[in-house]
């Protein structure tokens, strides 16, 4: 199966992975909820530098002696931000794809789907040494820009979800869809809460909680020296001795994240790196559909 994570891992580029995922998604959709863009007139807007000159309504100019730009329905299409946590912890992999690989593939696939239905997609790569931002555009060529930005992305530094929240609220000033891909491992216990405040600004926030199988199941047996991936902390432990406690902690963490998202009416999707990604997307889209 092409979309098996192990098989997907063999595809070297994000683009190929994204395409493979999207194809899986498209073949899995029975009826597309996106029927193409509308070209009907929606409203006038006073011209501002940067607006398309070809959209100036000359009739309105004749009436009011002011430049007005015509806005069409398609221009009210979704503005989407794909935010990817690229901290060092995201580069963890127990087998096959790392969490970052999975986040990139899913992000690219989403971008593809959005661009395909004329939505504007932007990218925000969150990392400790500064975020990389690509503003949303609906142009077909824009997808290539996003995929190139995701290509070869490496996890570095610590997770700063609070900073990401600030950045996103700055960039997504009006209603936008935000797709966050992160393991949510943040030192700040209120980081997720800060992120979820994006909902207060009418943004549509979807959290893809990406976790490795080993992080969820803790399958280690032998005496192990666990090393932090973001700082110099370490802990030697006999995994069998702490497994029960670890699993309890992890379950509380996942349940807590899901609960907080639900409280803020945000979508929460737990993504295991060992599950087929098209299924993840289909599951997500199906839930979205049910929510409408």
């Amino acid at each position: 199966m092409l979309l098996d994570p192990k098989a997907l891992a063999k595809l070297s580029t994000v683009k190929l992975r994204a395409r493979a995922v999207v194809e899986g998604v498209l073949s899995g959709l029975h009826k597309s909820p996106h029927q193409g863009q509308s070209v009907e007139f929606a409203e006038h807007k006073e011209y501002a530098p940067g607006d398309e000159i070809r959209h100036i309504d000359w009739k309105a100019y004749g009436k009011f002696d002011k430049y007005y730009v015509k806005r069409y329905e398609h221009e009210t299409n979704l503005r989407a931000f794909i935010a990817i946590d690229a901290s060092a912890s995201m580069s963890y992999r127990s087998n096959g794809l790392s969490k970052l690989d999975v986040a990139c593939a899913l992000g690219a696939a989403l971008a593809y789907l959005l661009v395909r239905q004329q939505d504007a997609v932007g990218l925000l790569v969150l990392r400790a040494d500064g975020a990389r931002y690509i503003p949303p555009r609906a142009a077909a060529g824009h997808l290539q820009t996003i995929i190139e930005a995701l290509e070869g992305l490496e996890g570095k530094g610590t997770t700063r979800l609070a900073a990401a929240a600030d950045l996103l609220s700055e960039k997504a000033r009006r209603r936008a869809a935000v797709f966050l891909f992160s393991d949510l491992f943040d030192e700040d216990p209120h980081a997720l809460k800060r992120l979820l405040q994006l909902r207060l600004r009418k943004n549509d926030l979807s959290v893809f909680h990406v976790l490795d199988r080993a992080e969820i199941e803790f399958p280690f047996e032998d005496n192990t020296l666990f090393l932090s991936m973001e700082d110099d902390r370490s802990q030697q432990a006999n995994p069998r001795e702490i497994r029960d406690s670890y699993l309890e902690e992890m379950k509380a963490f996942i349940d807590g994240a899901r609960e907080r998202c639900n409280e803020q009416d945000s979508d929460y999707e737990l993504v295991r790196t060992d599950e087929p990604l098209d299924k993840v997307l289909l599951r997500y889209l199906a839930r979205r559909e049910r929510g409408r």
Partner: peptide, 12 residues
């Protein structure tokens, strides 16, 4: 003890 970089070190 085998060293193993682990993202969920906080939980450990």
């Amino acid at each position: 003890a085998r060293p193993h970089p682990f993202a969920a070190i906080d939980f450990v």
